[in-house]
């Protein structure tokens, strides 16, 4: 097998992007908090590999830094911190969902179909690698949003948000020469968002003794 063969390069990029979508479905499927966090770590690891592969293919060494950021911060630091938060806050260890798993997964497949239908006509003239990359990035983005809106617990919503962020980075590295400044700012934005969410979670818990976001709704009839 020749790694310099453009077709093989294409297939590997395609495989890594596809694996991210697969892990995203695993994220949607998990019913325990710690497995969701572990699945997110895998998600970020694959993102790191996909970015590194793009750096190799596009001959853009600055993308290796983005890959390193993904691997160190998102695959190691953030999951460790989230495990800590879950332990510290005594968060309910099961994932609370708005709909059942089956319905959510079906919606996920429909969203992947939607991503294909949106991105294929848009990127018609920019080469197969870009098309595939953007389709998968869009799918990851959609699935992240789906995860955010179908989960009750704030921690899982944070994970959905970060999975969405991973999709954005996947989209950003797919197009040629995104400047490094932007990447670092994106990575920092994730960290900032994480900190903000952390504070937010502590606050919600202090106020309501639970991380269930339904308490934030003034009209909700949940007894406190």
């Amino acid at each position: 097998m020749e790694f310099s063969d453009p077709k093989v390069q294409l297939q590997i990029a395609y495989l890594l992007g596809g694996s991210m979508v697969v892990v995203n479905f695993a994220l949607l499927y998990q019913s325990r908090m710690s497995s969701v966090i572990n699945a997110f770590a895998i998600h970020a690891t694959i993102l790191g590999l996909a970015v590194a592969w793009q750096a190799n293919v596009q001959n853009a060494p600055n993308l290796y830094i983005t890959a390193a950021i993904a691997l160190v911060f998102k695959a190691l630091a953030l999951p460790a911190a989230l495990h800590y938060v879950v332990r510290k806050l005594n968060v309910h260890r099961t994932v609370e969902m708005v709909f059942g798993t089956g319905l959510t997964m079906m919606a996920g497949v429909a969203l992947v179909g939607l991503a294909v239908m949106i991105m294929q006509p848009v990127t018609q003239h920019s080469g197969a690698l870009v098309t595939i990359d953007l389709i998968f990035a869009m799918a990851v983005l959609f699935l992240g949003v789906l995860m955010m809106i179908t989960r009750r617990n704030a921690v899982t919503q944070v994970i959905g948000f970060m999975a969405m962020e991973n999709g954005l980075i996947l989209a950003a590295v797919g197009v040629h020469g995104m400047p490094l400044v932007v990447e670092i700012s994106v990575a920092l934005a994730v960290l900032v968002a994480f900190i903000v969410f952390g504070l937010f979670l502590f606050r919600i818990r202090e106020r309501f003794y639970s991380l269930d976001v339904r308490y934030l709704d003034p009209d909700s009839r949940i007894p406190q």
Binding site: V21, G102, M105, V109
Partner: peptide, 14 residues
Amino acid sequence: LADLLGGGFLFGLL
């Protein structure tokens, strides 16, 4: 089981 096997079906469909 319906979730697990439904997941299998969805992977196949995808």
